[in-house]
Design a protein around this nucleic acid. Sequence first.
DNA 1: GACCAGGCACATC
DNA 2: GATGTGCATGGT
Length: 223
Amino acid sequence: MHSLLNIFDMLLRALGPRHWWPGDSPLEVAAGAILTQNTAWTNVEKAISNMRENGLLDAQRLRSIDTAVLAQIIRPAGFYRIKAARLKAFIDFLWDEYDGSLDNMGHIETAALRRQLLAVRGIGPETADSILLYAVGKPIFVVDAYTFRFLRNHGLYTRKHTRAHTYDDVQSFFMKHLPLDTHLFNEFHALIVLLCQRYCKKKLLCELCPLGKDKEARVRKLS
DNA sequence: GACCAGGCACATC
DNA sequence: GATGTGCATGGT
């Protein structure tokens, strides 16, 4: 029986550090978190590249641009009208509360900041936590589709999947069994994503998974 | 041409 | 509280 920390170490040794999140600035990371909602990252890259070409990875420019124009620029990311509105809602919030800079969020208590983000239209639990962890550097565990796949494929999560409580349950599970460490949460989530992308797409590849068929690679199931 | 991809809000029962 | 649906592109 391994602990979650053991599993993290196994993944880190097998796959190497990921150094996430891809992005040159906190604002770019936050924009990526919104753009990647239910969307393949390859499409998000195109949208972010378009934003960069138009100088929109800048809080001032992003605040001023017309929503309909922004929508066309981020079009490759899909759901582009709604995501343009979400980016604008976020940037308005950023200016209203933090003078347009994510750096100003650093000294705010994590739970309070999370509540603020969740109050922004278009920012749900995963997007909020991605911003908190990867753009602001807060120690909070990100739960996403990969996290669920990882848990299910390794027999760690067997509860019925309901939308109302599952996210918080899974997040609590990770955070209860790991030290509160931003770098650890950052790498662990990034490693889960790589693991799923590389080994969990097709059943055959699971044979090569670093955690593989090793039944001992299981930790206590969620209660 | 179907199916999928790092969600979220809103409507309805 | 649980479930259904709209939003949309690009890769396989």
